[in-house]
Write a protein that binds this DNA or RNA. Structure first.
Lengths: 238, 238
DNA sequence: TTATTCAATGTAGTATACAAACTGTACACT
DNA sequence: AGTGTACAGTTTGTATACTACATTGAATAA
C-alpha cells in the first residue's frame, strides 16, 4: 500500500487524524450509536495501516465513545437514554460548580475566548446551522471550564459536554435541524455574570441553563415514544 | 521470542495484563512520576511484543497516568503538587455529591459492598499495611460511588480517587509507611449516614472527610519544603 | 577552548505478517 | 424436520519488520 505516501504530517499525525475524524463523526452521529467499526476498512479509508487505526480506537474506547467487544469488533458506544436523568444530574452539578468557579477565577484573557465562542454560537444560530451551533455551544462551555482553572473539574465537564453533543444532535436532527432561537439569550447572561464576578448569579444561571436543556430534551422524549428513538442497538434506528 | 508461549490467557489477556500491572505500579509509586517507560523493555519484561504494550500505554495515556512525548518516549505522569488545591476542590465537590446521592439511592446490596471494603480497610489498618490501606480506602469510596447510581459522576469520582492514591502514597511513604489511626472513625460514620438514608449528614461527613484529608496533606507539605517533594521532573526525587 | 556539523544510535510510529477466535453455512446424521 | 459438526471466511490480537525522528557524541572549524 504505497508506503511512505502521505498527504499531511509525515509522522505521528496518522493516529491523531483518524482519532479526530472518528471522534467528530461519532459525536455528530455521522456514525450511529451501535454501528460496527472495522479496523481494516477504516484503515484503507484513510490510507493507513491498522496500527494507527487501532490506536485511535483504543483512545476512543478509553473515553467511552466506542465499546470494544473482545475478539469480535468495536462498535460506536450506544446512547442509553434511560440514564439521561443521570446525565442531567452530572451536567447540572459540574456546570454549576465550573461556572461559579469561572466567575471567581476568570481573567480577562478567558473572557475573550468565551466571548469568541459565543460569537461563533450566534453566528451559527444566524446561519441556522445546527451542527455548528452544537459545536460552538460545547466550545462555549468548555471555555468557561478552562476559566475555572481546575483541570480535574474541567476535564470531567468537557467529557460530559461531549456526550451532550450526541444528545443535542438527536434532538435537533429529529426536528430536521431546525434551530430554535430560545437558546439565544441565556449565554450572554452567563457571560455577564462571569464578567461581573457574580458567583451566585453565575451558578444560578448555569443551573437554570442545564435544567432548560434537560427540560427540552425530556419534552422531546415524551413527544416521541421512547422506544422509537432507542438507538441503543441497531444501526438503522431513529 | 517463543511465540505462543504464555502463562495466563491465550488471547486478549496480554494487553490487559500489562495495563493492570503498569497502572498499579504507577499508582503505588513503584514507578516514580516522571520515570521514562520504554516500550521494548516493558515488552520483554512481560514476554510480549510491543503491540500489547503500546495498547496499554495508550490506555494509560488516555487516563492521564502517563504523558507521551511525541516521537520521544512516554513517561509516568508527573504529579504537580502545585495544583493540589484544585485537586481538593474537585474531590470535595464530587465526594459530597456522590455520597449524598448514595445516601439517597443506595440499595442493601450496595451496603454489603461498602461494608466489605471498609472491612478490608480496617484490616489493613490493623496490619499497619499502608499500601493495602490506601487501596481499600479507594475501594471504599468507589463503592459509595457505585451506590450513587450515576455513572458519569462515579467515573469522574473514581478517576480522582485514583489520582489520590498517588498523593496518599507520597504522604505515607514520607512517614515510613507508618499508619496513623486518626483515619479510623470517619468511614463508619459515613456508612451509618448512608444506611440511615440521611442525605444531609452524609454530605456533611463526606465534606469533612475530604477536608481532613486535604488538611493533613497540606500540613505535611508545609512541614517539608515544597521544593523537596517536587516529583514533577526527576526520577530520583523525594 | 568553544561552537557547529554530521554520523551513529536508539526509540517511537507505521506497515505487514501470522495466529487464534468468532460467524455463518453446508452437510450429515438422527 | 431438527440438530450437530466441519469447514471456510472474516476480523481481532500479537509478533515482527521497517522507517523516520531525535538525541548524542565525535570530529572539525573558528
Amino acid at each position: 500500500m504505497a508506503a511512505g505516501e502521505n498527504g499531511s504530517k509525515s509522522r505521528g499525525g496518522g493516529a491523531r487524524k483518524v482519532y479526530n475524524a472518528l471522534r467528530t463523526e461519532i459525536l455528530t452521529l455521522v456514525l450511529e450509536p451501535g454501528e460496527l467499526l472495522d479496523e481494516a476498512r477504516i484503515g484503507e479509508r484513510f490510507g493507513l495501516s491498522r496500527s494507527p487505526v487501532r490506536e485511535a480506537l483504543i483512545r476512543l474506547s478509553s473515553e467511552g465513545l466506542v465499546t470494544t467487544l473482545p475478539n469480535k469488533s468495536t462498535q460506536v458506544a450506544p446512547l442509553q437514554i434511560e440514564d439521561f436523568p443521570q446525565y442531567l444530574d452530572a451536567l447540572d452539578l459540574l456546570q454549576r460548580a465550573v461556572t461559579r468557579l469561572a466567575a471567581k477565577q476568570r481573567r480577562d484573557a478567558d473572557l475573550v475566548i468565551i466571548k469568541s465562542a459565543q460569537g461563533a454560537f450566534e453566528d451559527a444560530l444566524g446561519r441556522r446551522d445546527a451542527l455548528a451551533m452544537i459545536e460552538a455551544n460545547r466550545d462555549f462551555h468548555v471555555a468557561i471550564g478552562e476559566a475555572a482553572r481546575n483541570r480535574y473539574l474541567a476535564d470531567s465537564y468537557a467529557r460530559i459536554l461531549d456526550e451532550g453533543r450526541r444528545i443535542l444532535r438527536i434532538y435537533f436532527r429529529s426536528y430536521g435541524d431546525a434551530v430554535h432561537p430560545e437558546f439565544a439569550d441565556e449565554h450572554p447572561r452567563i457571560i455577564a455574570a462571569i464578567e461581573a464576578r457574580d458567583e451566585d448569579l453565575a451558578e444560578r444561571l448555569a443551573h437554570a441553563h442545564a435544567r432548560q436543556m434537560g427540560e427540552r430534551f425530556l419534552q422531546y422524549l415524551r413527544s416521541r415514544h421512547t422506544a422509537d428513538i432507542s438507538v441503543a442497538g441497531g444501526v438503522d434506528a431513529v
